[in-house]
């Protein structure tokens, strides 16, 4: 059972429907016991960093996530969920994140249209079981105005996309995985990535 953390983060239905399609059991929850008993965690998210981290802190989720990750439980952050893994975000101010990964969240440079919205290709930086049955340069769906930047651990970069900068698209460090795009909205490629993730952690 995957625990999808519920903190009123907008459209979670698409993610649940995608997991249903893959016949993966999931539950949308803010109950600490359910999260502790789950085999893995997904931190979804759309919207503003400030609201998200405030909400997670208020629900006590930040602490639970740190504990569960320290205990070795796999966690997947999607879009804003991935950004929340980092130390700091500079979205409308300066906000402290969960701090599972080193680095910061910065605005995409205005040399391109922001938000980065639409289908972009993934470049690989290292081999990963996530790429099982995935073609070279697959298109996935992005929609975000901020991206991981500043000094981050380059060895965590599994895949990136080019959009005014090198946008970290898949990051991984031990049991922590992040996807900046929306696999649940990325057609067959996205579903395959979620399936590969599921197999990678089981």
């Amino acid at each position: 059972m995957i625990a999808i953390i519920d903190y009123d983060a907008g459209n979670i239905k698409s993610l649940q429907f995608a997991l249903d399609k893959l016949k993966v059991e999931s539950v949308l929850t803010k109950d600490p016991a359910t999260i502790k008993n789950a085999s893995s965690i997904i931190l979804p998210g759309v919207g503003a960093f400030k609201d998200a981290i405030t909400s997670l802190n208020k629900l006590g989720m930040t602490e639970i996530i740190r504990e569960e990750v320290a205990n070795g439980k796999p966690i997947l952050g999607i879009c804003l969920g991935m950004q929340l893994f980092y130390e700091t975000s500079y979205e409308d101010g300066e906000w402290k994140g969960i701090g599972l990964l080193k680095g910061s969240v910065n605005r995409i440079p205005d040399i391109v249209k922001v938000p980065h919205m639409g289908w972009n290709t993934l470049q690989r930086h290292q081999e990963s079981p996530l790429f099982q049955n995935i073609s070279d340069d697959p298109f996935v769906y992005f929609v975000h105005s901020y991206a991981i930047g500043g000094p981050y651990e380059k060895e965590t970069l599994v895949s990136s996309s080019e959009y005014g900068m090198t946008v970290p698209a898949i990051v991984q460090k031990g049991n922590v995985t992040g996807m900046q795009f929306h696999p649940e909205k990325s057609g067959d490629v996205g579903l395959q990535l979620l399936k590969n993730y599921r197999e990678m952690i089981s």
Binding site: G10, G47, A48, D51, P115, M117, V143, S145
Partner: peptide
């Protein structure tokens, strides 16, 4: 935009 994010 503040509540749900500009992207949507």
């Amino acid at each position: 935009a503040t509540k749900f994010g500009s992207q949507c």
